[in-house]
Design a protein around this nucleic acid. Structure first.
Length: 445
RNA sequence: GGUCCCUUCGUCUAUCGGUUAGGACGCCUGGUUUUCAACCAGGAAAGAGGGGUUCGACUCCCCUAGGGACUGCCA
């Protein structure tokens, strides 16, 4: 039985990068018939909030990434404490007394001397007396895990054979000087307790994985399978982090992006599969495979998401969209033909707004000076009877007859006068929707 | 400074020593719609640079350049 986990910390909103990791975990678990667990990494009490936690859960639910079980690390401090005690008993957890400033200074000095900024393990050599003296100064220790100094190897599902030299790593701090836990130990303890079979996360965690494997082994656990996916970068090739705010789920949702558009893109981006609309997570799961992932950073382009969303929208019937349409404007649901007519011109549902005004509201017509006379003819020939399906055809045929205009010259002035725009849905469908009176008013200018 | 990863059309990628270097999205052109979009068809478009190895290199090796990650009492 495979068990995967997604472990966000509730210190911010879910963005496109997080969601990709969540989705990949979900998809693999689903494809294997396994479990997908949501773990809230809220060990950082100062920065974690209930609001973010709720928002994360809301976003995941919106995306359809349902979890079999969820828990908070803040409820499991006793477990982490027990693990810390065991490590301490084994001599693998040692007290250090440097302040952050002192550590910072040490790093800078090492760097300036051309040496790697690795912790010098000064804490390891402290005698009982020395420790007592330091504590007498009012210092409280933080605690580091003693790395083996050897190599940690694993076969990564995405990156292949990995070998991390722990000698080049600083011993990770597991417990802060205020006694609180950093994420490392809780993560390891939870992965063991919940029998996580696969850890799937971004490649920014590869060195963490090296240290974590050693801690897992020290605690008597078996390291899970590991998969580190390459990170997403922006369309401009720069790090995505700068634009994370605009790519948060709540913003995308407000823009009218479909959850499956997001999932379809994120499941395939950076893989050898074509990025195409998929209607369900089940389809994406069936197509999922770590062997399809490349190792180079993939570019996330918001424009691509919009295009994919447009493709989704064209597939949506009025029934599919009724709720969303009503939420935007009641007028959008009074005639199913409205959606069917307008959807091909929308990238997101929100794009119906201008068409609502065009069909049901008031807009400023656009009539070029040289087309005045033509529009006068058009008014004269406007079909008297109430508009049906053939109104546009009959009207333009008559106009063609009268003016000799054809093609673009025949249609574009009418489109611009009636909609204020040079593009849009089929006029033969749009005209009956807006009705004779509205058309007349706009032609009058 | 160090460690690790990466580099094929604009973008995501296929190729696992011998191919007219393939596909998808985008783009361009044409068709259709007597208009735009949508839709359909066709087209242009790529091996970062330099050295090797080899009968033969996109593919293997080295160097250079460029990009990414890590190097936190963040996760």
């Amino acid at each position: 039985m495979v068990t995967l986990r997604f472990a966000p910390s509730p210190t911010g909103k879910l963005h496109i990068g997080n969601v990709r990791t969540a989705l990949i975990n979900y998809l693999f678990a689903s494809a294997q018939g396994g479990r997908f667990i949501l773990r809230i990494d809220d060990t950082d009490q100062a920065r974690s909030t209930q609001a973010y936690e709720a928002a994360i859960k809301e976003d995941l639910t919106w995306l359809g990434l349902n979890w079999a079980e969820s828990f908070n690390q803040s409820d499991r401090f006793d477990r982490y404490q027990a693990a810390a005690d065991r490590l301490r008993d084994m001599g693998l957890l040692y007290a250090c007394y440097e302040t952050s400033e002192e550590l910072d200074r040490k790093r800078k000095i090492a760097l300036s001397r051309g040496r790697p900024p690795v912790y010098d393990r000064a804490g390891l050599d402290l005698s009982v007396e020395a420790r007592a003296a330091l504590e007498g100064e009012g210092r409280r220790p933080h605690w580091r895990f003693k790395l083996s100094g050897g190599r940690v190897d694993w076969v990564d599902l995405v990156r292949g054979a990995q070998s991390i030299d722990t000698h080049s790593l600083s011993d990770p701090v597991l417990i802060r000087d205020d006694g609180s836990f950093l994420y490392t130990l809780p993560s390891v303890v939870d992965d063991i307790d919940y029998q996580i079979s696969h850890i799937v996360r971004g490649e920014d965690h590869v060195t963490n994985s090296g240290a974590q494997i050693e801690i897992i082994q020290a605690l008597g656990g078996t390291p899970p399978e590991m998969a580190h996916t390459s990170l997403l970068i922006g369309a401009d090739g720069a790090a995505l982090s700068k634009r994370l705010g605009s790519l948060s789920m709540d913003v995308l949702r407000e823009q009218g992006i479909e959850p499956m558009a997001i999932c379809s893109l994120l499941a395939k981006l950076g893989t050898s599969e074509n990025i195409e609309p998929r209607a369900s997570l089940g389809e994406l799961a069936a197509e999922f495979g770590f062997d399809k992932f490349g190792r180079a950073p993939a570019r996330f382009d918001e424009a691509e998401l919009k295009r994919l969303n447009a493709a989704f929208i064209r597939e949506k019937s009025f029934a599919d969209m009724q709720m969303d349409l009503a939420a935007i404007d009641q007028r959008a649901v009074q005639d199913p033909a409205f959606w069917e007519t307008v959807k091909a011109n929308c990238e997101t549902v929100q794009d119906i707004r201008p068409w609502i005004e065009i069909v049901y509201g008031v807009i400023a017509p656009v009539i070029a000076e040289e087309d005045r006379a033509y529009i006068e003819d058009a008014i004269a020939l406007l079909p008297e009877l109430e508009f049906g399906d053939g109104a546009w055809r009959a009207w333009t045929a008559a106009l063609k007859e009268k003016t000799g205009r054809k093609g673009k010259a025949l249609f574009m002035p009418l489109r611009k006068a009636l909609t204020g725009l040079g593009y849009g849905p089929d006029m033969s469908a749009l005209l009956p929707l807006m009705g004779r009176e509205r058309a007349k008013t706009r032609l009058d200018g």
